[in-house]
Amino acid sequence: MSASAIIFYLIAAFILTMGILSVTSRKIFRSAIWLLFSLVGIAAFYFWMDLTFIAAVQIIIYVGGIVVLIIFSIFLTQKAGEQMPKPLRSRTLFSLLAVFFGFALTFLLIYKNTFPEISSHPFQLNVSDIGTQMLSTTEHGYVLPFEVVSMLLLAALIGCIVIAIKKESK
């Protein structure tokens, strides 16, 4: 087993452990922190694959954005510091079943799929290539999703302002 493979298994074990901890922990803030570590582990995966751009974006969006939002909303809730009650047995059973079937589905998909072998490093892209691809209108261009997402974000922004704006008292 090469050093690269050892690192792969270490990162995978880290992500899985943190994921399991985040689901089983009975303190909600700790769950958020375990989730954070699991997401950082995924970013480490991207780094391992030399996909540095995606790794950085993963960290910015998930760690710097979403988890911080989750932690903020935890701070604003009451009784966030207390232990949560133990889950009902039926619920545990059903979630275990869901996990099992989900795992079976993904495993089956991965098992059936044949991955093409890539020997060279095709991912060494510079920023201008990414930018061009993002706004290109050719076959593999991303201009449509890009614009749709920008419209969605703009709508969300305006919605936030409408909710937060102070009404003039008459």
Partner: peptide, 28 residues
């Protein structure tokens, strides 16, 4: 000399807030 240097810096520095939030919360 990572090829996304500046992006890397802004990504990692966004984690630093987590440490602060953690310290603030855990102190009770």
């Amino acid at each position: 000399d990572i090829n996304i240097g500046v992006l890397y810096i802004s990504a990692i520095s966004s984690i630093s807030v987590i440490g602060i939030l953690m310290a603030g919360w855990a102190s009770n």
